[in-house]
């Protein structure tokens, strides 16, 4: 007699992914056979020098692009089967380095629009109330929230981008240098939020950064060099 044990599949698995950019003159391979498994409830940081492929890796993992080779699976399901659009809509959110806010909207509208698109519904209250709460949590009061995002500073815009991603209530949160433009206090607040998301809400948080301080507060630190992803030895 055998006893079957069921193990939940990893939230995200990168299976031998490679990515090559085809330029006019030459092809540049940015990622080579990257193999890694991301788990729920864990806060990851990816370090690496500029041009090492961090943003490309983030784009592939977040479903913004498809790898030249290899596959990516979410909860054991290949993204090509799940559909990149559905994956981005229901399971993954990205905080871009360039914020990528909708410039004709207010901060509040940016957040509520993301909630409408992803279908995220707060447990209590309206989407607007939830958006105002998220914006308030990261230091944007109602007056700022109702301003057009182009009237906000770079740091404030970054906070709007973070609030927008948090509002989507997804399984995996990707962030590309999310604290780059923030003051120390706000940056720490964001890091704490990421940590809480991972540890209290069982989310997977993947942050690409140059910041050693941020990396030091994450659960696992990954290094990307010359297209190869390795886990730092001293991570638990």
């Amino acid at each position: 007699m055998t006893t079957a044990t069921t193990t939940a599949p990893p939230v995200l698995h990168l299976a031998g992914i490679s990515h090559t950019y085809s330029g006019q003159r030459r092809r540049t391979t940015v990622l080579r056979d990257v193999e890694y498994t991301f788990e729920r409830g864990t806060f990851y940081t990816i370090l690496g020098p500029s041009g090492s492929g961090k943003t490309t890796l983030l784009s592939l993992a977040s479903g913004l692009d498809t790898p030249t080779r290899g596959s990516i699976a979410f909860n054991g399901q290949d993204l090509s089967h799940l559909g990149l659009g559905r994956y981005r809509n229901k399971h993954a959110a990205t905080i871009f380095q360039q914020y990528n806010l909708l410039t004709y909207m207010t901060a509040l509208q940016n957040v509520t629009t993301a909630m409408e698109i992803t279908g995220a519904k707060p447990a209590t209250g309206s989407r607007k109330a939830r958006a105002l709460q998220l914006l308030g949590d990261i230091g944007l009061d109602k007056a700022m929230a109702t301003r057009n995002v182009m009237q906000l500073s770079g740091g404030q815009q970054q906070r709007v981008a973070i609030a927008r991603a948090l509002a989507c209530d997804v399984d995996i949160l990707f962030a590309d240098e999310p604290t780059g433009n923030l003051d120390e206090g706000t940056a720490q607040g964001i890091i704490d939020t990421f940590s809480d998301l991972a540890h209290q809400q069982d989310k997977c948080v993947v942050v690409v950064t140059h910041s050693q301080r941020l990396a030091a507060q994450s659960d696992r630190v990954l290094n990307l060099r010359k297209g190869k992803l390795t886990e730092q030895a001293n991570t638990p």
């Binding site: 977040s62 913004l64 659009g85 559905r86 959110a93 990528n100 909708l102 004709y104 698109i117 992803t118």
Partner: peptide
């Protein structure tokens, strides 16, 4: 704007 909205799965 297209890219951002598509990135959100629109």
């Amino acid at each position: 704007e297209f890219g951002v909205l598509l990135a959100m799965g629109e």
